[in-house]
Amino acid sequence: MPGMLKIIFGNLFKKRATRLYPFEKRAPFENARGSMDFAHMENCIFCNLCAKNCPPKAITVDRANKRNALDPLRCIQCGVCAEACPKKVIEMRGQYNEPCYAKRTHVAAQVVKCAQTPPEQK
């Protein structure tokens, strides 16, 4: 009991340990895996390796339309896709997924910088 007394009185004057989460966010740790992101789509060669290696099959690669899609609710944030991608297109953002109201697929289209081919319409 005396040890507990010391702790609770210490806590009274200590900074609280909890955070008001959605308003106060802690900076993610270095190399934390969080939600995945097609960060450098311009490098993608549509090799389908990410989709093939993804354990829950959350990625679809659309080679014809030059766009990749992610089902964020299927993704388990394992980071396998980021390791498998030969062009380092995929990055793990270190932040947890935002809560959502509806199931939506994240589509990342490749915007072609070169002037010969017109940019894709989404």
Partner: peptide, 9 residues
Amino acid sequence: ITARMQNRV
């Protein structure tokens, strides 16, 4: 006060 003693908000 209980929350503060338990280091909560």
